[in-house]
Nucleic acid binder design. Sequence first.
DNA 1: ACAAAAATCTTGGCATGGCTAAACTTCTTT
DNA 2: AAAGAAGTTTAGCCATGCCAAGATTTTTGT
Lengths: 250, 250
Amino acid sequence: MAARDITRTQAVEDYCKAIFTLESRREEPVSTNALAERLEITAGSVSAMLKKLDELDLTVHVPYRGVTLTAKGRRVALEVIRHHRLLELFLAETLQMPWDRVHAEAEVLEHVISEELEALIAAKLGNPTADPHGDPIPNAELELVQTPTRALDSLAVGERGVFVRVSDADPEMLRYLAGLGISPGDPFEVLEHQPFGGPLLVRFGAEQHAHEHTLGGALARAMRVDVGVGSPRTHLASSPPRTAIREGVA
Amino acid sequence: MAARDITRTQAVEDYCKAIFTLESRREEPVSTNALAERLEITAGSVSAMLKKLDELDLTVHVPYRGVTLTAKGRRVALEVIRHHRLLELFLAETLQMPWDRVHAEAEVLEHVISEELEALIAAKLGNPTADPHGDPIPNAELELVQTPTRALDSLAVGERGVFVRVSDADPEMLRYLAGLGISPGDPFEVLEHQPFGGPLLVRFGAEQHAHEHTLGGALARAMRVDVGVGSPRTHLASSPPRTAIREGVA
DNA sequence: ACAAAAATCTTGGCATGGCTAAACTTCTTT
DNA sequence: AAAGAAGTTTAGCCATGCCAAGATTTTTGT
């Protein structure tokens, strides 16, 4: 609601977001190099920026040991992520932008929309809980409901689940899956799984309009699936929360 | 369609837009100071930037004489203006953002939306020809249909016309007019006009739901009206073009 | 009409944010 | 303990802005 902090530049927001996702992926401080690779800049630049983030009280950086977000930094990250995912859904749903292009557009817009516009978009969409890739959207209080997922290629024959999401950063994959008619929310069953990291044969969809696909390689690793209760949830419907991470107000 | 030119930063776009509007207001080269005042920066900064714009072939600047846009520069300006006005309408219409806030939001977004998003928004709105303040929207070929208007406070008693627009940069005025129930497209008749720059008494609207207001000062000067044919046009309907400025493709 | 005053514009120097490349330091591993 | 990996520092670049001082043009007063 308050005016955006002057020091909170786009770069600062991008760093927070990147640290957040890397941090939640591997449960330990994020290395300078990992950040540099993710942001596609040199390690030197990262070093300099981390010093600044520390001064802003957004991170705690132990030289040579890695960086962690403070509560304040996590809040920045979650706000940007909320913007990003709301925007993706909005672009796809309200403007029919193709599934594989919303990410790039949201990547820019996430930094510039006002809190007011964020609220209007959320309202227009009925306060959704997941974006078109199936990623959860932090709510207005910046709580993120994380459904634990597994990589599709970790499943064995006979396992059923719901395709939840795919890394949204790869338009190629999104386009490909869209071409196959596979979207987040689709229930499936694994029919075959070849050994030695080989491909899977998967049947998607309900009985009448079921379709089978062979999926392997990086694609099968990028596809995240929910094998929890097994109750197929419809696209964008909210499922029972498993883990709620509450982000306090500092 | 092509990727945005690297050199085409937000500042460059803002300069082009500012030069364009100042240029079309007074039909002569734009002075450094006028630009500085408009952009709220110092004349020194403007001087430096004009040198750069000249190098980019966006302007022709004659030192001490003022600056003019080249065809290329005009195209940049019109593109940004098209973005701005489409966004204003979109925010107001699709997201119900209040009339007096769309300007500030559009001011930022205009620089970052892709051509694809521009096209989707235009399509969603049915390729509109005017924004919520009544300002004309350049079409996809960047032609701007200019309806010549007069300031409300230049009218004499008995004159009729259609309220076309108000400078979109003043939220105060917009809020005030919205509060009175006056919007672009409303037909009106001047009932009284006091001498010496005094206020006007104006009747707005058709017979049954007509309402009268006393308007004067800066407000009456900022309100632009169309006293042309006198045929009231409905909100956002396209009126017969008076002047079409074609912007060639360089 | 023309020089002095006022207004306007340009130049030069400086600051900030973010980046790179390359040199240097610290940690890890063998 | 030496090599190599990982991280940091230093020096420098570019874009965008600022200010102060100098240059130029316009206005004004006699």
